[in-house]
Design a protein around this nucleic acid. Structure first.
Length: 177
DNA sequence: GCCAACGTTGGC
DNA sequence: GCCAACGTTGGC
């Protein structure tokens, strides 16, 4: 797939350009991971990783169809004490069949997923930064401008969630302390 | 297509 | 570890 780079365009904070840029502009995502499985420190060490093992259809569809090269990612630690945003990453490869689904030795193996008709999809993300100050969920819940984030909604379990530039920037700023 | 049972997620 | 909230499975 061909990528269209429009850094100059997105830099304009002007409604006409923003409207025009919809569809090709960089998108923003919040991606959950249990730090006991894979943390922001692991990503910093590895530099890049395959986002494998997503076995939820809604999240699968997002990974397969919506997450694009250069999209920005908030790396969220779930099931942690406390849970919250630990860092940022960037999408470095667009959707491809999740190799763990084909691997009988993997805990994510799915015999119903074939190479010819893959059921599950991955992307690759690359480390950008670890936030100097961890941004806990409790703070997300009380920060103005983040009211519409999915992650603060009760019962929201989607592991790959859309967010926007405003929310991303607020959280990154919180993470600077 | 309904829905109960079961499994998983994830905050606390 | 608890448990509420979901998502999936499978009998009917």
């Amino acid at each position: 797939m061909q990528t269209i780079e429009i850094p100059e365009l997105v830099r304009y904070n002007h409604s006409y350009f923003c409207f025009f840029a919809v569809g090709i502009a960089v998108r923003y995502w919040l991606m959950k991971c249990e730090p006991s499985v894979y943390s922001i420190d692991d990503l910093r060490k590895d530099k890049s990783t395959i986002w494998e093992g997503v076995r939820n259809y809604q999240a699968r569809n997002i990974l397969r169809d919506d997450v694009k090269l250069h999209d920005k990612v908030l790396f969220y630690h779930s099931s942690a004490n406390p849970a919250g945003v630990a860092g940022t990453a960037v999408v470095s490869r667009e959707s491809f069949p999740d190799p763990t689904a084909f691997d009988p030795a993997s805990q994510y193996y799915d015999r119903q997923s074939s190479v010819y008709e893959p059921r599950w999809f991955s992307i690759e993300v690359t480390f950008v930064a670890k936030l100097p100050v961890f941004v806990p969920l409790a703070l997300l819940k009380t920060t103005r401008g983040l009211e519409n984030m999915l992650v603060i909604k009760k019962g929201m379990r989607l592991s790959v969630q859309p967010c926007n530039a405003k929310e991303y920037n607020i959280i990154v700023k919180l993470g600077q302390g």
